[in-house]
C-alpha cells in the first residue's frame, strides 16, 4: 500500500513540477514582451559567457573534427570512398555534431553556473532582496541569461563548425595524405546554406533550453548546500536530456 502511495506522490510531484515549469516559461515570455531592460546587466552577462566559453568551444570543435576525419577514413577506405571524407566531416559537423556537442558542453559550462549562482542567491535570500528592492527577477535574472545564451549558442556553433572543419582538414591533409586544395574545395562545394542553417536553428533551440532550464532549477531549488548541488546537477541533466531528445524532432523537421 505504501509503495502505491509513494508512486502516486511521485506522479503528482512530477506533473506539478512540469506545470510549474510551463508557467515559468509563460511568465518569461510575458516579461520578455513587457520588458524592463537592464542593458548593462544583459551586456555583461553576454560578454562573460562568451569569453569563458571560447576555450572549451575551440577544443570541442577541433577534436571532434579530427576524430570524425579519422573514423570516417576507417569506414570509407573499406569500399574506396575516401574522397567523401570532406563532405562527411562538414555535413556531420554543421547539421549534427556542432549544435549537439556545443549544447552539451555549454550546458555543463554555463548552465551549471547559472543554476548554481541563482540557487545560491535564493539560499542567501538575494532573490527576496530583489523583490524588496522592487526589481522583478524575471527582468533582472532570467531575461538576460536566456537572451544571452539563446543568441550566443549560434555563434558558438558557427565557431565549432569552422574549427571542426579545420580539425578534419589537418588530419586529412597531414595524417591521411589528402590534397589540401581538393579537401577545401570539396568541403565548400558540398556544403549548402540549408545544412548550416539547420544547425543554427538547433543552436537557438538548445540555447533557449539550457538557459530556461538552468534558471528554473536555480530559482526553485531547495534550501541549503544540498539544494544548490541538486539544482546544478538537475540543470545539466535535464538540459542534456532535452537537447538530445529535441534534437531528434528538430532533425525530423529539417530531414
Amino acid at each position: 500500500m505504501k509503495f502505491i502511495e509513494n508512486i502516486g506522490k511521485f506522479v503528482i510531484k512530477l506533473f506539478s513540477s512540469f506545470g510549474k515549469f510551463i508557467l515559468f516559461i509563460l511568465f518569461f515570455f510575458k516579461y520578455l514582451f513587457k520588458p524592463k531592460f537592464y542593458l548593462k546587466n544583459n551586456l555583461s552577462f553576454f560578454v562573460n559567457i562568451f569569453i569563458s566559453s571560447i576555450p572549451i568551444i575551440a577544443l570541442t570543435g577541433i577534436f571532434s573534427g579530427m576524430v570524425l576525419a579519422l573514423q570516417s577514413y576507417t569506414g570509407f577506405s573499406r569500399f574506396s570512398a575516401e574522397s567523401a571524407i570532406p563532405n562527411i566531416v562538414v555535413l556531420t559537423l554543421t547539421r549534427e555534431l556542432g549544435p549537439v556537442l556545443t549544447g552539451l558542453m555549454i550546458s555543463a559550462r554555463v548552465g551549471s553556473s547559472i543554476a548554481a549562482e541563482i540557487a545560491t542567491m535564493r539560499v542567501t535570500e538575494q532573490i527576496d532582496a530583489l523583490k524588496t528592492l522592487n526589481t522583478n527577477y524575471y527582468n533582472y535574472l532570467v531575461t538576460p541569461r536566456v537572451l544571452s545564451l539563446t543568441l550566443a549558442l549560434p555563434i558558438f556553433v558557427t565557431l565549432v563548425d569552422f574549427i571542426g572543419v579545420m580539425g578534419g582538414y589537418i588530419v586529412s591533409v597531414h595524417r591521411l595524405g589528402f590534397n589540401d586544395n581538393l579537401y577545401l574545395l570539396n568541403t565548400i562545394d558540398f556544403l549548402s546554406l540549408g545544412d548550416y542553417l539547420s544547425g543554427i536553428f538547433k543552436a537557438f533551440a538548445f540555447g533557449f533550453i539550457i538557459s530556461i532550464v538552468s534558471c528554473y532549477c536555480g530559482l526553485f531549488s531547495d534550501k541549503g548546500a544540498f539544494g544548490v548541488g541538486s539544482a546544478t546537477t538537475n540543470a545539466v541533466v535535464i538540459s542534456s536530456v532535452l537537447i538530445l531528445s529535441s534534437n531528434y524532432f528538430l532533425t525530423e523537421l529539417f530531414f
Binding site: 542567501t124 535570500e125 538575494q126 527576496d128 532582496a129 524588496t132
Partner: peptide, 8 residues
C-alpha cells in the same frame, strides 16, 4: 528589509 545575513 534588512535580511538576516545581509543578502548583499
Amino acid at each position: 528589509m534588512l535580511f538576516q545575513y545581509g543578502a548583499l
